[in-house]
Amino acid sequence: MSNMIPVGIVLLLFYALLRRVKVFSAFLSGAEDGLPMLKKLLPCLAAMLVAISVFRDSGALTFLTDRLAPLCERLGIDACLLPLILLRPLSGSASVALLSDLFRSFGPDSVIGLTGSVLLGASESILYALALYFGSVGIRKTRFAIPLSVAATMASIGFGLLFSKLFFE
């Protein structure tokens, strides 16, 4: 499956050749478009990652997890999944790290491992994306983007838990 992307790239190159596209200069002009964005990206990333890392390292995240654990048990959600659920909207790499932890302790084919996989796959690190997307172009008034994105994320997590229950339990 991991071969799909490289094969796709080769197909694209042949197709471009067929259409007599100047592949090298087309690549350069595309990459050049990316440069100004990179410069705007760094401050934005720094701000967001500073906030996320201090929130996680200070124990505020664990505090929140501990408070919410009883509620989760009542809803039939394993409390082991809580850190993943809370951190998923904030950071993609942190949630991959958390899922790897779950894989190590319970195995990737356990109910927890499978449910965690679905949660990771079915949702997105949206707060991070919001900061990045809006920050990179200097949007101050975000209108209905944040409430709508939060609703979408909650729907993703809810449906993810529901379908995991149906499939794996």
Binding site: I9, L12, V21, K22, A26, F27, L28, S29, G30, A31
Partner: peptide
């Protein structure tokens, strides 16, 4: 982004 340049140039 470079690849997108190629995709765009080939009309995909």
């Amino acid at each position: 982004m470079g690849l997108m340049g190629v995709v765009r140039a080939s009309g995909l």
